[in-house]
Design a protein around this nucleic acid. Structure first.
Lengths: 145, 145
DNA sequence: TGATATCCTATTGGCTTAGTAGATTATTAT
DNA sequence: ATAATAATCTACTAAGCCAATAGGATATCA
């Protein structure tokens, strides 16, 4: 099990925007350079973030992208779901009628617990938290924990 | 994010084996019928479980498959990793040299926490637990919680 | 009006998934 | 012995997704 590049790149990109919150808009080109992501690909990822209302844009020269809300109001869950798509380990979690068998039920509970565990993490952290962590590790120079 | 059919089917299949632990071997055909899975496909999934040592087989008539260890000694993590493959949200978790940038670090922590949360669930439950849950829900008839 | 930067749509190669198909081998019961 | 049974092995395939790449259109500022 692996996260898509979409999610990994996108998370890094929106963190860049969070780090610049309150300042001038950031351009795709800049983010792509800083994060070493293909310009054109990043364009699409940011479009997804914009479509879901997490990011807004300014066109033309001196334009770029801005966080649509304060970092403290954006949970990682929001970003994750936008990029990775719906978090449904098994269909029967959303549509119990898919689950006519008894033994399914026990496994179904597990998939439910897995989903809860993942959401637990992603809901407990906001972009503001990420910014704080990011600045702290920059200060101490401890890139790897 | 969704689990593969491999993992969902395979987990149900090995649960069937756990439910029959100590009894006669279960045949592919039987499991496939009970769980409504393609015979031929299930064959391959069980082969994976056998290759990883969780299941053993007896060939010929009256043959079939058996759990290689008591259900209490098989964590769901073992089954999951066999079927779903290695759980590495991001490459930089295993190879920190992939992580030259500072902002990566904050996201990297998150992927680490996600991995821990998932493993936490999958390590805390064994097939014996699943069997117990399964029998209980069969008794009460509460298939959906 | 030209430069800048977002926006939009289409296309692609490569990989994985979820099977299907068919033949082979080992074991048991008659 | 032999026929039936059930696992084992290998190969193939259609469909879908991923991670880009490409090229042009549109809005905005100086």
């Amino acid at each position: 099990m692996k996260l898509s590049s979409r999610t990994r790149y996108g998370m890094r990109a929106i963190l860049e925007l969070a780090l610049e919150y309150g300042k001038a808009p950031l351009q795709i080109k800049t983010i792509a350079e800083r994060e070493d992501i293909s310009n054109k690909y990043l364009e699409q990822l940011i479009a997804m973030l914009k479509a879901s209302g997490l990011v807004r844009s300014i066109r033309g020269p001196r334009g770029g992208y801005l966080l649509a809300k304060p970092p403290s109001e954006i949970q990682l869950k929001d970003v994750f779901l936008t990029l990775e798509g719906p978090m449904v380990p098994a269909e029967c979690l959303e549509h119990p009628e898919y689950c006519p068998r008894c033994t399914d039920c026990a496994t179904r509970q597990i998939w439910q617990e897995l989903q809860n565990a993942i959401f637990g993490v992603l809901e407990s952290v906001t972009l503001a938290d990420l910014v704080e962590r990011s600045l702290r590790s920059k200060k101490t120079g401890n890139y790897h924990i």
